[in-house]
């Protein structure tokens, strides 16, 4: 295996991982943009989508419709969470809302454990998606699920781009993200915009959850936590609340993680997560608006 092949392989790995991070981060950013809410429950909405898909495949549904139902289930979960837990405290201080989302996480996770136990379950992926491609005499490999992840990331994001630039509700979401009060003054139906934003973000979580579980091979109630933390980092690096920023942040984080494991000395590799979160803190301090909003000010 040549050095070049090694590098190409790691780039492929980075793009595949980055796509997953980007998908989670985009959903997180939509909610943050519109509501200024750091939604810890996003990871658990992913879990809802992934579990629904697994259960439906379990009763014999093919992968594609099961995945669509999973996304739908996530959207419904997001809708319910917003109505039941978040709406009553919409005007409460940041911290109250952050804590409420933590409590929602705690409930969903433990509900999942009560219903399904905390043991991991197999994610039955159809063989076609497990098939791997071998290039350059087997030195470079990737699988169809990698391809599907990257493809769905792009397709769904193009769809999202169309939605927020071409539809009234999408434009309303952007207006609300820019300035909620002004949007309200010009007659925007805030409830509608927020609920749509939540549904869209949760559907993204569902898609991300299914793809994450498909790549991981297992689902379990606490599966949402790691992607959520990573997505926080990705979203903040990119510029929290910015959709293009979340996309950029996701791919950068994927690349950074793979770079650390692939090219850094062995002593450094185990500190990967520490490096990633140190980067997060550095961004919050020195470039709080992330890469996309360099002028944002969030200090004292």
């Amino acid at each position: 295996m040549s050095q070049l092949e090694y590098i190409i392989q790691q780039i492929i790995n980075a793009v595949s991982l980055g796509s997953l991070y980007a998908l989670v981060a985009v959903g997180l950013s939509i909610v943050f943009g519109v509501l200024k809410l750091t939604n810890f429950a996003h990871g658990d909405v992913m879990m809802v989508g992934a579990f629904t898909t697994v259960l439906l495949i379990g009763i014999g549904m093919p992968f594609a419709p099961a995945m669509l139902c999973g996304i739908l289930a996530s959207a419904v979960a997001g809708f319910l969470i917003e109505r039941i837990a978040y709406r009553p405290i919409r005007n409460a201080p940041d911290v109250t809302r952050l804590l409420t989302s933590l409590a929602v996480t705690y409930i969903l996770e433990n509900l999942g454990i009560l219903l399904f136990t905390s043991s991991p379950r197999n994610f039955p992926l159809p063989d076609i998606l497990n098939t791997s491609w071998q290039l350059s005499g087997g030195a470079i490999t990737f699988t169809n699920i990698n391809v599907l992840t990257v493809a769905l990331t792009f397709v769904s994001l193009i769809g999202l781009g169309w939605f927020i630039t071409r539809t009234t509700i999408g434009l309303g979401m952007r207006a609300a993200a820019e300035d909620m009060q002004a949007a309200q003054l010009v007659g925007l139906n805030v409830n509608k915009v927020i609920i749509i934003a939540f549904i869209v973000a949760s559907a993204y979580a569902g898609l991300a959850g299914v793809l994450w579980a498909a790549q991981a091979g297992v689902v379990q109630p606490q599966m949402g936590f790691t992607p959520l933390l990573k997505a926080f980092v990705a979203a903040i690096i990119g510029g929290f609340g910015s959709i293009s920023g979340a996309l950029l942040g996701g791919y950068m984080l994927g690349a950074l993680e793979i770079f650390i494991v692939a090219f850094m000395p062995d002593v450094v590799v185990p500190y990967r997560d520490a490096i990633v979160f140190a980067l997060l803190i550095a961004f919050l301090l020195f470039r709080p608006g992330g890469l996309m909003q360099p002028n944002r000010e969030i200090k004292l």
Binding site: Q10, N13, S16, L17, Q215, G217, V261, A262, P270, D273
Partner: peptide
């Protein structure tokens, strides 16, 4: 080589073996 419980992606470690 090492990884940490909860990791889902081992492609980088695998590429190192290759």
């Amino acid at each position: 080589d090492t990884y940490k419980i909860g990791d889902k992606n081992f492609t980088a470690q695998i590429a190192k073996i290759k």
